[in-house]
């Protein structure tokens, strides 16, 4: 018989975190790209012509790719992710619900991350553009 969550806090809280993998990665990406870009621009590190900043743009794209890759991994391997986080085997009766929620959320988060990274491709990193 598998472990029940009645005796394991890690399983209770871990399951909730498992669902939220996608959004958590999105939050991480936003923190990284906004923090890096605004600090680099505030201190005028690496600013080029017309407010461009290769360093900032590069950081934004790099961080985005990293976070998106992790989200894709979770999307593809829900079972492994679940075990990693909760330390327990996947609960069979709710598993379809949990994985589908996790996957759709990860998908939406991937989209949000893509949107956020898009600006760095199209716009100079430090210009006010006003």
């Amino acid at each position: 018989m598998r472990m029940r969550d009645t005796s394991s806090n890690r399983q209770m809280i871990g399951t909730l975190i498992f669902i939220l993998i996608g959004p958590i990665l999105w939050a991480l990406q936003l923190t990284l790209i906004y923090g890096a870009q605004s600090s680099l621009c505030a201190f005028e590190v690496g600013i080029g012509a017309n407010g461009g900043n290769v360093l900032a743009a590069g950081t934004v794209i790099g961080a985005s790719v990293l976070c998106m890759a992790l989200a894709v991994a979770a999307f593809v391997m829900p079972g492994a992710s679940y075990r990693l986080i909760t330390g327990a085997s996947s609960p069979d009766d709710q598993w379809p619900f949990l994985t589908s929620v996790m996957r759709i959320l990860a998908g939406l988060s991937l989209l949000a991350m893509l949107y956020a990274a898009l600006g760095a491709v199209l716009l100079p990193a430090c210009a006010q553009l006003r």
């Binding site: 936003l30 790209i33 906004y34 870009q37 605004s38 621009c41 407010g51 900032a56 743009a57 934004v60 939406l108 989209l111 949000a112 949107y115 956020a116 898009l118 600006g119 760095a120 199209l122 716009l123 100079p124 990193a125 430090c126 210009a127 006010q128 553009l129 006003r130």
Partner: peptide
């Protein structure tokens, strides 16, 4: 407020993303 355009796009992007739900 006059913060760099690229910063604004991050939040514009999130605003688009929140429309989907």
């Amino acid at each position: 407020t006059g913060i760099p355009a690229l910063s604004l796009t991050f939040f514009s992007a999130a605003s688009m993303a929140v429309a989907i739900p």
